[in-house]
Design a protein around this nucleic acid. Structure first.
Lengths: 167, 167
DNA sequence: CGGCAATCGTTCGGTACCGAACTATTCGAC
DNA sequence: GTCGAATAGTTCGGTACCGAACGATTGCCG
């Protein structure tokens, strides 16, 4: 390892990769963009769970469920799973733990007894109302160094990716 | 629900949220930016595991391990965990499953018998060499609709977030 | 009506992932 | 040289997450 800068070492690595692959061309711009999405998401999630959510015994997903219910009031399971971006099987388990914690409650829909609605309890409402502003301040810290236009641009670019990955 | 567009409904929701919170101001730009990071990451990961990684019986994390080893050759466990952005306890398990699949192998460092290096086997090398170009094409599809400058910008903005969330 | 297909939510088996406790090895101080 | 502190990796308990299989309920069509 020489006195190369990090950037130069990465470029060396890219040249090396490309060389090993010969004819098959690699799009490094796409690679970095996508790889950074995952890295950023994992880092932000870990940070949030350690610093803010742990004291409330909440996972990232649990927090999202409370938040969605807070915004949209009571919801049916399937709709809630879609809104939280979770498989419905996953949601069942997480709603159950939130229910044990007394933060949400289920109710069968009388008109169609296959369906179940989920809603915040009073405790759940108190919790999310206290947590959300602090969570948002965390989001502000995570986007420190970005101005408003850049935050919007980041969100816009990510929406394009989300659509491309859309089910 | 009226004939509002989706954008208008979201703005209504934001006004509603802000109203409920009263004095505590919310930064919605930060919120959307951070929320979209997580959403995009989850969507991309699911898509990749279903479409490309499943046939090789690899998880996202497993693929990343192979990829890092392919680029940087043999590595010590701690370094590998850092490079793959995984807790070292997590890495132990994942390396073990990759080892069972015959894709990597461990070796004790003779000079310091606490340390362990991990390296690709020939099978592992063949696999990643076949998989990576296809994975990169997947990344290209995921960033379809972004031009090169936008991909670079996306990666740059995410790097800022990653730094903010840095351990 | 009576059964068949569609549609809910739940269950189940499996992996990934974390953080904290533990084990083995090395190194430094006296 | 030995004992304790530091360090590398593993183990362990717990949750989150997925996808496929399942069971219950409803609606449709004869």
């Amino acid at each position: 390892m020489t006195d190369h800068t990090t950037d130069e070492r990465l470029l060396d690595a890219e040249r090396d990769i490309q060389a090993r692959l010969g004819d098959r061309p690699i799009d490094f711009e796409s690679m970095h963009a996508i790889a950074n999405i995952y890295r950023a998401a994992a880092a932000v999630r870990r940070h949030a769970e350690r610093d803010i959510l742990a004291e409330a015994n909440l996972s990232w997903g649990g927090f999202v469920i409370l938040w969605v219910l807070w915004v949209w009031d009571e919801m049916e399971t399937a709709q809630l799973a879609a809104e939280c971006d979770l498989a419905k099987g996953t949601l069942t388990g997480m709603v159950s733990t939130l229910e044990k914690q007394g933060l949400v409650q289920r109710a069968r829909v009388e008109a169609d007894r296959r369906r179940v609605t989920v809603a915040l309890t009073d405790d759940g409402e108190d919790l999310i109302e206290d947590l959300f502003p602090r969570f948002n301040q965390f989001e502000v810290r995570m986007s420190d160094g970005l101005d408003t236009a850049e935050k919007r641009e980041l969100a816009r670019l990510l929406r394009i990716v989300i659509n491309n990955a859309g089910d």
